[in-house]
Design a protein around this nucleic acid. Sequence first.
DNA 1: TGCACGATAATCT
DNA 2: GATTATCGTGCAA
Length: 193
Amino acid sequence: MRRLRRAELPEDPAELARFLVGKTLVHDSPAGRMSGRIVETEAYLVGDPACHAYRGETKRNHALFLERGHVYVYFIYGAHYMLNVSADRAGAGAGVLLRAMEPLEGLALMRGSGKPTEIACGPGRLAAAMQITPQFDGGDFCGPGPLWLGTAERPVGEIGKSVRIGITKAAHLELRFYERGNPCVSGPARLRN
DNA sequence: TGCACGATAATCT
DNA sequence: GATTATCGTGCAA
């Protein structure tokens, strides 16, 4: 496995979301390497009312406006962090939410509970498992940092598409992508197969 | 398996 | 003061 270069990332947010399914997410923490195979993502587009960047740039969503491949981390519901990859061109304001991951390396280092298939099943759990903190916000997945995206460790299966989960605006758009049948995918059963 | 519900805090209006 | 890209628990079937 090697690091993905920015030039390899599709510029279009929906294409990037689809591209990232099957790729590897790596956190080289002081305690050791944690990595996982991305199995579920969602795209948030320019002009999309559900996108945090929809109402313009603020201090919180600044990272969404960086060139594609940067890290956007935010805190929600008083309890959970979400990990996103910025998308589109610099200044656009779009991103891809990483929703679920199949653990590969460093399972013992990951925070959370439950079976290995459940520890990173859902965006809040994924961020908790990978020990994502606000300090990563604004960082670069394509730079030399400890948090990065790698090539696929094994071929990706069939990719399914569905509506996004947990949103109220533009809820009908099919911008969620996942590996069909993978037990680590979150959401109701009808949105996993 | 599939719902309903509350916790909890940063951000923005 | 409203809103929120979630999670875990609890209960019914």
